[in-house]
């Protein structure tokens, strides 16, 4: 249990030797490894920091670019909206123009249809009026009307202008006698008046022949060769029927 100086000194030497051994073979390698690892970690952290900085830069660039894109998008949207508005206005104008043209075409078609209908109605009215007049005059035909029409014929022939008379004379030019056809038998007095009037106005040297034709309804018709002087209801109704319609 006592203190042995030799052991004391040798233990000091032993400890110093152990200190050198551990420093040489334990501490230095382990500390070097730790320092190398820490350097690697620091290097990795530095690289991570650099990457973070680059990432931050890229993020800021991306955000800036994103903002630019947003502005470009807004500008493009505005341009697109303006273009769409202009196109809409143009299309509306075209549509309005087409609608106006269509409306005009419709109005024209409607006017045409209305005119056609009006003409059809007018034609129908003419037809009915003619039928009515024909039926009415047919029912009114009688010897008295015949006498009145003879009077009218005589008056018309007496009042016929000279130019017309000259035309009739030139057309007849002595081709046979004048033929007077009546719907009813004429009295002698009526025949005499007719013959004398025709002879006086047309200066016919020949005689005048008389005939009957019930289809004349009333009145008479004078045939002078190729010419005819008609003063009968049938003739008037024929003129009336052949006259231009009111629809036109």
């Amino acid at each position: 249990m006592g203190l042995d100086w030799t052991t004391f000194l040798l233990e000091i030497v032993n400890f110093l030797a152990l200190l050198w051994i551990l420093k040489r073979f334990l501490y230095q390698p382990v500390l070097a490894t730790l320092a190398e690892r820490r350097a690697g970690i620091a290097r990795t952290l530095g690289e991570a920091s650099d990457k973070e900085a680059r990432a931050t830069t890229l993020q800021s660039q991306f955000e800036s670019r994103l903002a630019d894109w947003e502005q470009e998008k807004a500008a493009a949207r505005s341009a697109f909206d303006a273009e769409m508005a202009a196109e809409r206005v143009r299309q509306l104008d075209l549509l309005s123009h087409d609608l106006a043209a269509e409306r005009d075409r419709g109005a024209a078609v409607e006017a045409h249809a209305r005119e056609t209908l009006r003409r059809e109605l007018a034609a129908q009215a003419d037809k009915e009026a003619r039928q009515f007049a024909s039926a009415l005059l047919t029912r009114l035909a009688c010897p008295e009307l015949e006498a009145r029409l003879v009077d009218v014929f005589i008056e018309e022939l007496a009042g016929l202008p000279d130019a017309r008379l000259a035309t009739l004379k030139a057309a007849h030019n002595g081709h046979g006698p004048a033929v007077v056809t009546s719907a009813y038998p004429l009295s002698d007095a009526q025949r005499e008046r007719i013959a004398s009037t025709i002879g006086a106005r047309l200066e016919l040297p020949g005689r005048v022949e008389f005939g009957l034709d019930a289809s004349l309804l009333a009145g008479l018709r004078v045939s002078l060769g190729a010419w005819q002087l008609d003063c009968s209801l049938a003739g008037e109704l024929g003129v009336f029927a052949e006259a231009p319609s009111f629809a036109n």
Partner: peptide, 11 residues
């Protein structure tokens, strides 16, 4: 051993 501990203490 006291010699060892004394040596360590002396160091």
């Amino acid at each position: 051993d006291l010699s060892t501990t004394a040596a360590l203490a002396f160091l």
